[in-house]
Amino acid sequence: MLKNRIIPCLDVKNGRVVKGINFVDLKDAGDPVEQAKIYSDGGADEICFLDITASNENRDTIYDVVERTSKKCFVPLTVGGGVRSVEDINKLLNCGADKVSINTAAVQNPDVVVESSKKFGSQCIVVAIDAKKVNDSWKVFTHGGRNETETDALEFAKQMEICGAGELLVTSMDRDGTQIGYDIDLMKSISSKVNIPLIASGGVGNLDHLLDGIKLGNANAVLAASIFHYGKYSILDAKKFLDSKGIPVRI
């Protein structure tokens, strides 16, 4: 049986982890490679890097991080943040990323999704949808959630499936950082609309939230950041909990 995946996400800025695990025995707590290794040794089903480097001159730092990580971690590595073009995707894949997530560029130019999925295969193209409730529907936001668009999130999700996305990473902007749980309605609505896997993101504060994301939100994978980084729970804690609730996980 296919297992539900647990994916820790690390924010990386200028090649350094911004929010991450704070273990005393870490030689260099800011090194994304060391952090990724801890997660993969701890049973993470996949590792996600979100590059939040703002300045253009430091954009290349992520390539070095990905290259070094892929030599140490032998679980899938997804990299997103600032991916603009087919060439950016090519570079990340060549450095050792297994999947690349595309956010703003997918909204502004869906051809990037069409072209890249044709060129590299759908299996490595993840479209990241940042959605926020506006009146009675969810709208897509771009540029790290700063810019509102007129695009309806549900329709956009379907469009991205047709364009060739292999997976959707759906983040609720309303819930991100709140630790009150995923936006279950959003996850459920998108999941029932598409036939590709959905990764739920945004709002996890405890293990029940992971359970809800899978059970109620119909997510195939759950992504979380802070609950793992600050040692509140380990990946194994999360898996044991989900297993005890009858959710299939890899232990």
């Binding site: 296919l2 539900n4 299996q123 292999g166 997976e167 590709i196 195939n220």
Partner: peptide, 16 residues
């Protein structure tokens, strides 16, 4: 065979 959408494709993830 995705059995009319019952199984999502691609088959992505860890399986035994």
């Amino acid at each position: 065979n995705n059995q009319n959408g019952k199984f999502k494709l691609p088959h992505i993830g860890w399986n035994q």
